[in-house]
């Protein structure tokens, strides 16, 4: 290397810079996925809260017919997908920050990752079962 002052010295390799990878070698994927799901959840949560308000006091039949409406089924499925995706991304960061034992960290991460898929799949299947039966 030359003797010029360290103006352009980089500790990161040029390949790493081109790929956009930081010290964790995964780039901005996690960050971006968290923002994408957050932006999707903004209108979906407002829709969901408003739906719950108008569903207050409904019986089983009314609830069933509400879920069965095409738009409501689609929004419910989208809500479940973005919510569990967002939740597992967020919980992952919390676990990585505060759980310092490698064994516990790995165990909790597995529970969160598998658990979110399990609950999302169950929720989606419930929506489909209610709407297709009705």
């Amino acid at each position: 290397m030359s003797n010029t002052p360290n103006r352009n010295r980089q500790l990161r390799s040029k390949l790493g810079r081109v790929r956009g990878l930081g010290s964790s070698h995964e780039g901005v994927h996690h960050w971006w996925a968290q923002r994408m799901s957050a932006m999707a959840l903004l209108p979906l949560s407002l829709w969901f809260i408003f739906s719950l308000i108008s569903l207050t006091g409904s019986d089983y039949v009314a609830f069933q017919s509400w879920v069965s409406e095409f738009g409501n089924s689609v929004f419910l499925v989208l809500f479940l997908v973005s919510m569990f995706h967002h939740a597992q991304l967020g919980l992952q960061v919390v676990i990585e920050d505060y759980v310092h034992s490698e064994l516990w960290k790995m165990g909790l991460l597995l529970i969160v990752k598998y658990g979110s898929v399990l609950f999302a799949a169950s929720g989606i299947f419930a929506v489909l079962k209610i709407s297709l039966a009705g």
């Binding site: 419910l76 929720g123 419930a126």
Partner: peptide, 15 residues
């Protein structure tokens, strides 16, 4: 996250 699990429980109960 617990609310999300609760939502799944609620939907599953209806199913």
């Amino acid at each position: 996250s617990l609310a999300a699990v609760m939502l799944t429980y609620w939907l599953a109960s209806a199913a």
